[in-house]
């Protein structure tokens, strides 16, 4: 097959094919990402010329915009990129294992679990424990909630549809707990928590970026290594079992990765909705169904979506800085409706 490049290790532990087309698309998307990153750095209450931005970043600038660029905008744009990538891949994995195009971390309850963990942290531990542990609380919340969803969906194995429905139920429960905590807590904590819940990159700093980065650096390659089983699993549980894939084991493993990706992203940026749903679909339209190719493409597209949404959120209603989640929902919801329409006969 001249159109494909196969990559295989000796023991076949890692094995995937990437279409040449995918490689080209990946290259183009990377260029687009760089372009949008630069634009994201230029836009704001004070417009900085893109050429100046590039000069500053490469160290040839005169340092005029040092503070605005390096302290305010760069962390925010980087954060948007990482969060978008994490949410996109989390959604991609979920859609792969649930085999339902409508599955996404925010619809089946992982995000609300993370929110619950984070709100519990904000309300009860904010004063006494360092803010650095907030991500841990969110991941823990996402993990516990997903575990419960998984456990309750288990009746001689887990079927995707049961998992989605139970996820919706658990999600409602987690939201009730969040509202309860918000009502009990004092006003200052409520406002902070509420802003966070909608998904905002406001006040991101370099420290946050360094805290989020390791999760992606570890989890993305891991997903890549496991990619080959996903393609098999998409054929259906019976066929996959027949081909020797331990379906339930891998499903759990992928769920774990997805939870950690979504949880860590939510921890830093709150519930940025619909990215996990939209990004995987867009990349599937571009590069087809090969999972190995989908991972990097989805990550980049997720990043682009969140950077653009955040750019709009902080410039459209100046001087107000709106939560990014509002704009991802504005892009994502119509897309979701289109998806429901397109998959109507499946």
């Amino acid at each position: 097959m001249p159109n494909y490049v196969s990559v295989r290790t000796k023991t076949n532990r890692i094995s995937f094919q990437i279409a040449k087309r995918t490689a080209w698309i990946l290259l183009l998307l990377s260029l687009l990402l760089i372009l949008i990153t630069v634009l994201g750095l230029s836009a704001g209450s004070e417009f900085i010329h893109p050429v100046t931005v590039v000069k500053e970043l490469l160290g040839y600038g005169n340092g005029d915009y040092d503070f605005v660029l390096h302290t305010l905008r760069l962390p925010r744009v980087l954060m948007a990129l990482l969060v978008g990538a994490a949410l996109g891949v989390a959604g991609l994995i979920l859609q792969g294992i649930i085999r339902n195009p409508l599955a996404a971390p925010d619809i089946i309850g992982i995000t609300s679990g993370a929110s619950m963990g984070a709100i519990i942290f904000i309300v009860y531990f904010m004063g006494s424990v360092s803010i650095q542990f907030l991500p841990l609380a969110a991941i823990l919340g996402a993990g516990i909630v997903s575990f419960i969803i998984y456990l309750l969906s288990w009746r001689k194995g887990v079927t995707p549809i049961r998992m989605v429905l139970i996820g919706i139920g658990i999600s409602a429960l987690a939201k009730a707990v969040v509202t309860m905590l918000l009502v009990i807590s004092n006003v200052a904590a409520t406002t902070k928590a509420y802003l966070w819940l909608t998904g905002s990159l406001y006040g991101a700093n370099m420290q946050d970026v360094y805290l989020l980065l390791p999760w992606l650096v570890i989890l993305m390659p891991l997903t890549f290594i496991l990619a080959r089983t996903v393609n098999v699993k998409e054929l259906g549980d019976e066929i996959a079992i027949g081909l020797g894939v331990k379906v339930q084991v891998y499903r759990l493993l992928f769920l774990l990765i997805s939870v950690m990706l979504a949880g860590s992203a939510v921890a830093f940026a709150g519930g940025i909705a619909f990215v996990g749903l939209v990004a995987p679909h867009m990349s599937r339209m571009l590069v087809g169904r090969s999972f190995a190719g989908l991972i990097p493409v989805t990550a980049i597209i997720g990043g682009i979506i969140v950077i653009v949404a955040d750019m709009v959120a902080r410039t459209a209603f100046l001087p107000k800085d709106l939560p990014t989640g509002v704009f991802t929902a504005a892009i994502g919801a119509p897309f979701f409706i289109y998806l429901l329409f397109r998959t109507r006969n499946q």
């Binding site: 619809i107 504005a330 919801a333």
Partner: peptide
């Protein structure tokens, strides 16, 4: 999905 849409707009 519709709930998620309206809730995030409301927020």
């Amino acid at each position: 999905a519709i709930t998620a849409l309206f809730v995030s707009f409301t927020q």
